[in-house]
Design a protein around this nucleic acid. Sequence first.
DNA 1: AGGCGAACTGACTGCTGGGTCGGATCGGAA
DNA 2: TTCCGATCCGACCCAGCAGTCAGTTCGCCT
Lengths: 194, 194
Amino acid sequence: MEATGTQAGKEKQILAAARRIFATTGYYQARVEDIAREAGIGKGTVYEYFTSKEELYLQMLLEIADSYASGLAEVIGRPGDLREKLLGIGRHLRDFLQEHGQLARMFLQDPGPVNRKLQDHLLQIRRETVQQVEKLLAAGAAAGHMRPVDTGVAARFFLGGLAGVLLPGLIEELAPPEALAMTVDIFLQGIDSS
Amino acid sequence: MEATGTQAGKEKQILAAARRIFATTGYYQARVEDIAREAGIGKGTVYEYFTSKEELYLQMLLEIADSYASGLAEVIGRPGDLREKLLGIGRHLRDFLQEHGQLARMFLQDPGPVNRKLQDHLLQIRRETVQQVEKLLAAGAAAGHMRPVDTGVAARFFLGGLAGVLLPGLIEELAPPEALAMTVDIFLQGIDSS
DNA sequence: AGGCGAACTGACTGCTGGGTCGGATCGGAA
DNA sequence: TTCCGATCCGACCCAGCAGTCAGTTCGCCT
């Protein structure tokens, strides 16, 4: 009764613990008992809320993926010019990586029964993201000053480049704060036609 | 005696089998027995050549990583202007992903005792790659027409962007052949100052 | 107080799979 | 042909852990 845990909150509690444990050890090395301990409950209780380790893992990743996707959509929806929006996307990605850095790499984890089920969902999110950026670029093209590059390639290049600049910051050394703006600027000049 | 396997060749044989099995199932799902079967030998024999599953895995990944790194250095060393070299890097990455697509994601796999030991080596390779590209860019800057962007950010942006354009081709749909050149062009214009 | 169901628990079970090892097989030297 | 070391093999051993379940505690109602 000392920890947070009023009835339905227990599920959240377990998910949060799972996030921490899975993030540090990965799926296979994580023991359900560790997650239970981290959540301050008994192992059996985990199975009152989730039918299996795999299901718990799935639930956790989907939750995170969805929060990322909806956050991104919100950022893109905010008013502003192209540069402002691209910066917003970058910031959103940066914040996400800061919070879920270790978990993010799990989206690229090895295949297997666990991830098979995730693939469709994650692919869907990725497609949507690319499409949203494409739409931004198409709008920019319509507004004039943009040379006629393939928006699909440009969108993927931009997103991949962002990851290339931001992700290493977590595993290598911290990316300087101005790296984000630089990236956007290089990209913008890259597609500019003025 | 039907398969290839003359003495020292057996180690290569096992490594090749390991590559195939690990690529399809990932580290944890792969059973040593499967690898042995795939290599056409008994499970015990695997342990004549490798002390453990983990060591076999490590050996395999390091081999691939090194072949990637040395191939890249060779490509960069070839004479040609900046555009030609960047294209070469892209082609090299594309070919590598085509051959080792599934394994490539393993470099980003979950943490744990297995990968800990790899981290330094892979980080080293990544740093070298970034530095080599930085050097190319610095040379381009010296040669004149290039605005003064941070070469570190630009290099990471370029490499990440390449991966963003090429990797999805494997998991999503095939990247069109011209995507590579487009990527390089966008990037080049992005850093151009003429 | 007392009774009841819901929530919780961790000792226990069964299985999976890494690593071992005694014995089989091979191939070349004498 | 015989012998011997090197190589190969897979049945066996056992540690680790997901999932179960019989028993306990909790908290609410009467």
